[in-house]
Simulated scan of single mutants.
Amino acid sequence: MADLSQEEWARMSAEDPNSVILDVRTPEEVEDGKIGDAIHIDIYTGQAFVDALEKLDKSKNYYVYCRSGNRSGQACAILNSLGFPNAYNLKGGILEWEGELQ
């Protein structure tokens, strides 16, 4: 897992043809907008979160974010423990995001 600044995270996810953006916030938080075409999997759903992660393609590179960067850091650690080699945390989360939201 790597903690990336907004600039690094945005550049790498945009330039990476193998990138998947993963939003681990709650459904209520997602209603305020999301980054790009992010896949939403709520980290607070416990085993259902792990089950959903296990269905993802391990060959992809995951760019993960939450509200402040804490939950997404935990999600990156979980991804790594499940055998996903490339998980990148957005340091500061969506609170510090200066790009567009959808």
Results as ranks from 00 to 15, higher is better:
I94T: 13
G93N: 04
W9F: 12
A14Q: 15
C76A: 13
P85S: 10
N18Q: 12
A77S: 14
K58Y: 07
G92L: 01
I43T: 03
C76D: 05
L95R: 02
S72K: 03
V64D: 06
I94C: 02
R11D: 12
N18I: 03
S19L: 04
N70V: 13
A48T: 13
C76L: 09
I43M: 15
N61Q: 12
G46P: 01
L53Q: 13
D32L: 12
Y62A: 04
F84Q: 09
N61S: 15
L56A: 10
D16Q: 09
P27H: 01
C66F: 04
G83H: 09
H40I: 00
S72H: 06
K58W: 07
E98D: 10
S81N: 14
L22F: 09
V30D: 02
D32P: 00
G92W: 00
G46D: 15
L101T: 13
R11F: 05
M1L: 07
R25Q: 04
M12F: 10
A77Q: 15
C66Q: 02
G83P: 11
E96F: 03
N18G: 04
N70S: 08
A2V: 04
R67W: 00
S5K: 03
E15C: 01
L101E: 02
E8G: 02
V24K: 06
G33F: 04
E15Y: 02
E28N: 07
W97R: 00
C76H: 11
N70C: 00
I39T: 15
L53N: 10
I78P: 08
Y88T: 05
Y65H: 11
S5W: 02
E7V: 05
S68N: 01
L82E: 14
Y65L: 01
Q47V: 13
I94P: 04
K34C: 04
R25V: 03
E29K: 00
G99S: 06
P17Q: 04
D23L: 03
A87M: 04
A75E: 13
Q6R: 10
D57M: 04
I43V: 14
A38T: 08
A14G: 11
L90P: 05
P85D: 08
H40Y: 00
D16R: 07
T45K: 12
G83T: 09
L56R: 12
K91P: 00
W9G: 01
S13Q: 15
K58F: 08
G93L: 02
N89G: 09
